[in-house]
Simulated assay, not measured.
Amino acid sequence: MEDVPVMSIGEFARRSRLSPKALRLYERQGLLVPTAVDPVTGYRSYAEDQLDAARLIGRLRRLDMPLAVVGAVLAAPADARADLVAEYWAAVVRRIAVQSDLAAYLRSMLSEGKGLSAMYEVSSRAVPDQVVLTEQRHIRQPELSGWIGAAMSRLFTTALTDGGPSGSPFVIYHGEVTEDSDGPVEVCVPVAREVAGTPSRVEPAHTEAFVRLRKREVRYPQILGAFDAVATWVTDQGHPLTEAPREVYFADWEKIGPDDPACDIALPFKP
């Protein structure tokens, strides 16, 4: 059998453009294991045909790809690796977009609201009265999203027993909701008429100011900037506030993408 040419860790580091320290890390992670390790000296040897894998690891790490994801790319069939890199980078782009929104909100908050008008376009509209099925609960922010989804699902199921919803569901914040404050919060699903045995009421007709958010913007705490923008607009227009702020969900949350319109942040006022 022909001997396979090997090289020292120093030479392999030079040719792969990876440091010996990085090579030892990748060895510990099982990503790039030397062909041999001298039991006495601990000297490591690498084969020529390991250079392609080493260079690929280096390039993936320049994308700040976690080692676990790098390992998945290396373990994948050659024809699947490009798709894994594309999936990883798409997730990075989504994360950066969310962080960008959060940074903009924090800049506005730390500058006492300056720049809110540039971040959000506030409009107004008339809303007719409507019968709504409701579910209300005192709840803090960490549990809020899960409860809203579950409550809407229950109310939608009830509405479907009598013709289905007649409008977009919305969430009313009757009190402040944070990590320390628990609302209360009310989920409402409009219907044509009351459903026996289910809490319901008439939501009065009103005029409301609102801003439209994309799905990725409906996150805490950056969503607070939209509430602040609407409240500032109403106050600047000299209108008295009449009702609690709300989120109006007009899109199918599960079917839309992160950059699709998803929710209106609305605040009723007296014209």
Rank of each mutant, 00 (worst) to 15 (best):
209 A>K: 04
129 D>G: 12
37 V>L: 00
75 A>Y: 05
157 T>R: 15
186 E>C: 11
184 P>V: 06
6 V>T: 07
190 P>A: 09
14 R>V: 03
249 Y>W: 09
68 A>D: 00
163 G>N: 11
101 D>R: 04
191 V>R: 12
238 G>Y: 03
99 Q>V: 05
123 S>P: 12
212 R>W: 01
169 P>M: 00
122 V>D: 08
181 S>G: 08
248 V>F: 11
152 M>D: 08
145 S>W: 07
163 G>K: 08
3 D>L: 14
157 T>Q: 15
180 D>K: 03
27 E>N: 03
69 V>M: 13
257 G>T: 09
208 E>A: 11
128 P>V: 06
56 L>T: 02
198 T>S: 14
62 R>A: 14
62 R>S: 12
216 R>I: 06
233 W>A: 15
9 I>E: 02
164 G>P: 09
21 K>P: 01
41 T>R: 10
84 L>M: 10
167 G>Q: 02
257 G>C: 06
167 G>E: 05
214 R>H: 14
199 P>D: 03
111 S>A: 11
231 A>C: 08
235 T>A: 12
133 L>I: 02
47 A>R: 02
109 M>V: 15
214 R>G: 15
14 R>I: 04
210 F>R: 09
171 V>K: 13
128 P>H: 04
217 E>D: 12
58 G>T: 04
76 A>I: 05
189 V>S: 07
180 D>A: 09
223 I>S: 08
244 A>S: 15
32 L>D: 08
141 Q>S: 05
247 E>D: 13
220 Y>D: 10
122 V>R: 09
224 L>C: 08
241 L>Y: 12
172 I>S: 11
100 S>M: 11
158 T>F: 14
31 L>N: 02
3 D>K: 13
27 E>R: 01
169 P>S: 00
118 A>W: 05
117 S>T: 10
